[in-house]
Amino acid sequence: MPDLSFRVEMAGDVPVVVTPEDIDITNAAAFRTALLEAAGRSRTFVVDMSRTQFCDTAGIHALVAAHKQAGGDGGDIRLVVTSAPVLRIFAITGFDQAISSFSRLDQALATP
């Protein structure tokens, strides 16, 4: 049974939400909670999706809501996305136009 939970880790001052292999309706609520937790620690944070192979609109919904909230607070969300299926879904939904994404965690953290 794959682990479908989300962790919030700290890379220095920057919270990093680490997402599991699958994000869908069954764990979207947990995703929202993790995003809220990260936002509570810092207006700008990273979502590391390098382990994620599947993300449907439930996951995107959670990210969009968090992204809008962060923007409203003067902050920013940065994604680390590596898998082709996730990149594809982000391209189709136009989400890649809305949010900055990187192929490596250190790149996402390095940006001021």
Binding site: V64, I92, T93, F95, Q97, A98
Partner: peptide, 12 residues
Amino acid sequence: RPGSMIGMGLQA
């Protein structure tokens, strides 16, 4: 060509 979802907050 793709365009952004409804409700995403983009204007383009």
